[in-house]
Simulated assay, not measured.
Amino acid sequence: MSSSCSHLLSALKECLLQSDCVLKQGHLPSECLREHTNELPESCKALRQATFECKRGMLDMRKRFRGNNVDLPPPPPKAQEQTAPASA
């Protein structure tokens, strides 16, 4: 898969793993996507739709030269290491 959709796919995986369908009901994430979509939270449904649109955009020949225009949420901030200045 192209790297343009990888951020959405990882966000969808995290959302599924934290949903009640997986945690409380014990279903597999793939089962939740296929059979229990009504039980998923709205954020997972939106990520599922965005992932679908991203994958469809990769096949669109009109976007071949311009690239896949994906509205990605900003990546999570990395932990910044705070270093104390060394005294001379």
Rank of each mutant, 00 (worst) to 15 (best):
S2Y: 13
S2M: 12
C5V: 03
S6H: 07
S6L: 14
H7L: 14
H7D: 13
L8R: 01
L8G: 08
S10M: 01
S10G: 00
A11T: 04
A11F: 06
A11H: 08
L12E: 02
E14C: 11
E14A: 06
C15V: 00
C15E: 01
L16K: 09
L16C: 07
L17Y: 11
Q18E: 15
Q18L: 13
S19C: 10
C21G: 00
C21S: 12
V22C: 05
L23K: 15
Q25H: 11
G26Y: 03
H27E: 02
H27A: 03
L28V: 00
P29T: 05
E31W: 04
E31F: 09
E31R: 07
C32K: 04
C32F: 03
L33C: 01
L33E: 10
L33Y: 05
L33W: 04
L33P: 00
R34F: 07
R34T: 07
E35A: 11
T37H: 07
T37N: 07
T37R: 10
N38A: 11
E39N: 11
P41N: 09
S43K: 10
C44F: 00
A46D: 06
L47K: 03
L47I: 01
Q49D: 10
A50E: 10
T51S: 15
T51H: 03
C54S: 05
C54N: 01
K55D: 04
K55P: 02
R56V: 09
R56T: 08
R56D: 02
R56I: 02
G57Y: 06
L59K: 13
L59I: 10
M61K: 15
K63F: 01
R64A: 12
R64W: 06
F65N: 08
F65G: 06
R66P: 00
R66E: 10
R66F: 00
N68R: 13
N68P: 07
N68W: 00
V70L: 05
L72Y: 01
P74G: 06
P75T: 08
P75H: 04
P76F: 04
K78I: 14
E81D: 07
E81F: 09
E81S: 11
Q82K: 15
Q82A: 09
T83P: 09
T83C: 14
P85G: 03
S87M: 05
A88H: 11
A88G: 11
A88M: 10
